[in-house]
């Protein structure tokens, strides 16, 4: 599961859908792998517009990366300095994969697992409604 995906998933429990604390999930015991991917600066710049930056910073911290700025950067793929930052972001968002690990809801405490890069959000019957 790509790091970028963490910005678009949250707890699947009905009661958590509208809770602010069910997004992002808390990531624990994660095994990361890097997978080389084509660098698409335009794609990244547009993804940045959609990204919830504070959630991204929080998940990065869960995974041991404290280097992200607190404010969302405004980047222009034509500027050389910005391209360097975009490459870093590409490396983090697109090339970093969570191979195995746990995702925990900060609202209800439910634990979801990622196995072989696939997150599993199926709920036990008592949490389905």
């Amino acid at each position: 599961m790509k790091f970028l995906t963490t910005n678009f998933i949250q707890c699947a429990v009905k009661g958590c859908q509208s809770s602010d604390s069910s997004f992002p999930l808390k990531y624990e015991e994660c095994e990361l792998v890097a997978e080389t991917q084509e660098f698409k600066p335009e794609f990244l710049v547009h993804m940045l517009e959609k990204i919830n930056w504070s959630a991204l910073v929080q998940v990065a911290r869960d995974l041991g990366n404290d280097n992200l700025p607190t404010e969302k950067p405004e980047l222009d793929p034509i500027m050389e300095d910005d391209v360097l930052i975009l490459k870093d972001l590409h490396n983090l968002l697109v090339e970093t994969n969570i191979l195995n690990g746990k995702m925990i809801c900060n609202n209800c405490g439910h634990i979801y697992f990622i196995k072989n890069s696939i997150p599993n959000f199926l709920l036990p019957p008592h949490l389905c409604n």
Partner: peptide
């Protein structure tokens, strides 16, 4: 989902019930 991941490890996929989707609302 394992088939999907096997066909292309670049696909962003997950296992989930259609009535309990793991996504933020209005996103």
């Amino acid at each position: 989902i394992e088939c999907a991941h096997g066909l292309n490890s670049n696909y962003n996929v997950g296992i989930s019930d259609g009535l309990s989707l793991p996504h933020p609302n209005n996103k």
